[in-house]
Deep mutational scan, measured.
Amino acid sequence: KFNKERVIAIGEIMRLPNLNSLQVVAFINSLRDDPSQSANLLAEAKKLNDAQAP
Score class of each variant (00 low, 15 high):
residue 1 K to G: 15
residue 1 K to P: 12
residue 1 K to V: 07
residue 1 K to H: 14
residue 1 K to C: 15
residue 1 K to N: 15
residue 2 F to D: 15
residue 2 F to P: 15
residue 2 F to E: 15
residue 2 F to S: 15
residue 2 F to I: 15
residue 2 F to H: 15
residue 2 F to T: 15
residue 2 F to Q: 15
residue 2 F to C: 15
residue 2 F to V: 15
residue 2 F to R: 15
residue 3 N to P: 15
residue 3 N to M: 04
residue 3 N to K: 03
residue 3 N to T: 08
residue 3 N to E: 15
residue 3 N to Q: 14
residue 3 N to A: 07
residue 3 N to W: 15
residue 3 N to H: 14
residue 3 N to G: 11
residue 4 K to G: 13
residue 4 K to S: 13
residue 4 K to P: 15
residue 4 K to M: 04
residue 4 K to L: 03
residue 4 K to W: 14
residue 4 K to I: 04
residue 4 K to D: 15
residue 5 E to N: 06
residue 5 E to Y: 04
residue 5 E to K: 03
residue 5 E to C: 14
residue 5 E to V: 04
residue 5 E to P: 02
residue 5 E to D: 13
residue 5 E to I: 12
residue 6 R to I: 15
residue 6 R to C: 15
residue 7 V to Y: 14
residue 7 V to D: 15
residue 7 V to W: 14
residue 7 V to C: 15
residue 7 V to M: 14
residue 8 I to G: 03
residue 8 I to Q: 08
residue 8 I to S: 04
residue 8 I to A: 05
residue 8 I to F: 06
residue 8 I to M: 13
residue 9 A to T: 11
residue 9 A to C: 05
residue 9 A to W: 06
residue 9 A to Y: 06
residue 9 A to K: 02
residue 9 A to M: 07
residue 9 A to P: 01
residue 9 A to Q: 03
residue 9 A to L: 08
residue 10 I to A: 05
residue 10 I to V: 06
residue 10 I to S: 04
residue 10 I to C: 10
residue 10 I to N: 02
residue 10 I to K: 03
residue 11 G to D: 05
residue 11 G to E: 11
residue 11 G to P: 01
residue 11 G to V: 05
residue 11 G to R: 11
residue 11 G to I: 12
residue 11 G to F: 10
residue 11 G to L: 09
residue 11 G to A: 09
residue 12 E to Y: 12
residue 12 E to C: 14
residue 12 E to Q: 10
residue 12 E to G: 07
residue 12 E to L: 14
residue 12 E to N: 05
residue 13 I to P: 00
residue 13 I to H: 00
residue 13 I to K: 00
residue 13 I to W: 01
residue 13 I to Q: 01
residue 14 M to D: 02
residue 14 M to W: 03
residue 14 M to Q: 06
residue 14 M to T: 05
residue 14 M to P: 01
residue 15 R to S: 11
residue 15 R to P: 01
residue 15 R to Q: 09
residue 15 R to H: 09
residue 15 R to W: 04
residue 16 L to I: 01
residue 16 L to A: 00
residue 16 L to H: 02
residue 16 L to P: 00
residue 16 L to G: 01
residue 16 L to N: 01
residue 16 L to Y: 04
residue 17 P to S: 07
residue 17 P to R: 07
residue 17 P to D: 05
residue 17 P to Q: 08
residue 17 P to G: 08
residue 17 P to M: 06
residue 17 P to A: 08
residue 18 N to I: 01
residue 18 N to S: 04
residue 18 N to Y: 12
residue 18 N to E: 02
residue 18 N to A: 03
residue 18 N to M: 03
residue 18 N to F: 09
residue 19 L to R: 00
residue 19 L to I: 03
residue 19 L to M: 02
residue 20 N to C: 13
residue 20 N to D: 08
residue 20 N to S: 13
residue 20 N to P: 01
residue 20 N to F: 06
residue 20 N to Y: 06
residue 20 N to E: 04
residue 21 S to T: 14
residue 21 S to A: 12
residue 21 S to K: 08
residue 21 S to H: 13
residue 21 S to R: 12
residue 22 L to I: 07
residue 22 L to W: 14
residue 22 L to P: 06
residue 22 L to K: 12
residue 22 L to R: 12
residue 22 L to E: 10
residue 22 L to Y: 12
residue 22 L to N: 12
residue 22 L to A: 12
residue 23 Q to M: 03
residue 23 Q to P: 00
residue 23 Q to W: 03
residue 23 Q to L: 04
residue 23 Q to E: 02
residue 23 Q to A: 02
residue 23 Q to R: 00
residue 23 Q to D: 03
residue 23 Q to I: 04
residue 23 Q to K: 00
residue 24 V to P: 00
residue 24 V to F: 04
residue 24 V to E: 02
residue 24 V to A: 04
residue 24 V to Y: 03
residue 24 V to W: 03
residue 24 V to N: 02
residue 24 V to D: 00
residue 24 V to K: 13
residue 25 V to A: 10
residue 25 V to T: 10
residue 25 V to S: 10
residue 25 V to C: 14
residue 25 V to D: 08
residue 25 V to N: 10
residue 26 A to P: 00
residue 26 A to D: 10
residue 26 A to L: 06
residue 26 A to Y: 08
residue 26 A to C: 14
residue 26 A to G: 13
residue 26 A to K: 08
residue 27 F to L: 06
residue 27 F to Y: 06
residue 27 F to D: 01
residue 27 F to S: 01
residue 27 F to K: 01
residue 27 F to N: 00
residue 27 F to R: 00
residue 27 F to T: 01
residue 28 I to T: 03
residue 28 I to R: 01
residue 28 I to K: 02
residue 28 I to H: 02
residue 28 I to E: 02
residue 28 I to Q: 03
residue 29 N to G: 07
residue 29 N to K: 10
residue 29 N to Q: 11
residue 29 N to E: 13
residue 29 N to A: 12
residue 29 N to D: 11
residue 30 S to D: 09
residue 30 S to C: 11
residue 30 S to G: 09
residue 30 S to N: 07
residue 30 S to T: 12
residue 30 S to F: 12
residue 30 S to M: 13
residue 30 S to H: 08
residue 30 S to K: 13
residue 31 L to S: 02
residue 31 L to M: 05
residue 31 L to F: 04
residue 31 L to A: 03
residue 31 L to G: 00
residue 31 L to I: 13
residue 31 L to E: 01
residue 32 R to A: 14
residue 32 R to D: 15
residue 32 R to Q: 14
residue 32 R to Y: 14
residue 33 D to K: 11
residue 33 D to P: 01
residue 33 D to L: 11
residue 33 D to G: 07
residue 33 D to F: 12
residue 34 D to P: 02
residue 34 D to C: 14
residue 34 D to G: 03
residue 34 D to M: 08
residue 35 P to A: 14
residue 35 P to T: 07
residue 35 P to C: 14
residue 35 P to R: 03
residue 35 P to W: 13
residue 35 P to E: 05
residue 36 S to K: 07
residue 36 S to E: 08
residue 36 S to M: 08
residue 36 S to F: 09
residue 36 S to D: 05
residue 36 S to Q: 10
residue 36 S to V: 08
residue 37 Q to R: 13
residue 37 Q to H: 08
residue 37 Q to Y: 06
residue 38 S to I: 15
residue 38 S to R: 06
residue 38 S to P: 04
residue 38 S to L: 14
residue 38 S to A: 12
residue 39 A to V: 12
residue 39 A to Y: 11
residue 39 A to E: 09
residue 39 A to L: 13
residue 39 A to C: 14
residue 39 A to Q: 11
residue 39 A to I: 10
residue 39 A to T: 12
residue 39 A to R: 11
residue 39 A to N: 09
residue 39 A to S: 10
residue 39 A to W: 13
residue 40 N to L: 10
residue 40 N to C: 13
residue 41 L to S: 03
residue 41 L to T: 12
residue 41 L to C: 09
residue 41 L to K: 08
residue 41 L to W: 06
residue 41 L to P: 00
residue 41 L to F: 07
residue 41 L to E: 02
residue 41 L to G: 01
residue 41 L to Q: 04
residue 42 L to F: 03
residue 42 L to W: 03
residue 42 L to P: 00
residue 42 L to V: 11
residue 42 L to N: 01
residue 43 A to V: 07
residue 43 A to R: 05
residue 43 A to L: 11
residue 43 A to D: 11
residue 43 A to S: 13
residue 43 A to G: 06
residue 44 E to T: 08
residue 44 E to M: 13
residue 44 E to N: 05
residue 44 E to R: 11
residue 44 E to Y: 10
residue 44 E to P: 00
residue 45 A to S: 02
residue 45 A to M: 03
residue 45 A to Q: 00
residue 45 A to T: 00
residue 45 A to W: 02
residue 45 A to E: 00
residue 46 K to Y: 09
residue 46 K to G: 02
residue 46 K to R: 13
residue 47 K to T: 11
residue 47 K to R: 11
residue 47 K to M: 11
residue 47 K to N: 08
residue 47 K to S: 10
residue 47 K to V: 07
residue 48 L to M: 07
residue 48 L to Q: 04
residue 48 L to A: 07
residue 48 L to D: 01
residue 48 L to F: 04
residue 48 L to C: 03
residue 49 N to C: 03
residue 49 N to R: 00
residue 49 N to D: 04
residue 50 D to Q: 08
residue 50 D to H: 08
residue 50 D to G: 08
residue 50 D to E: 11
residue 51 A to T: 07
residue 51 A to M: 12
residue 51 A to C: 13
residue 51 A to W: 08
residue 52 Q to V: 05
residue 52 Q to E: 03
residue 52 Q to K: 03
residue 52 Q to S: 04
residue 52 Q to F: 05
residue 52 Q to H: 04
residue 52 Q to M: 13
residue 52 Q to A: 04
residue 52 Q to Y: 05
residue 52 Q to N: 05
residue 53 A to I: 09
residue 53 A to V: 07
residue 53 A to D: 10
residue 54 P to L: 08
residue 54 P to C: 14
residue 54 P to F: 09
residue 54 P to W: 05
residue 54 P to T: 09
residue 54 P to A: 11
residue 54 P to H: 10
residue 54 P to I: 11
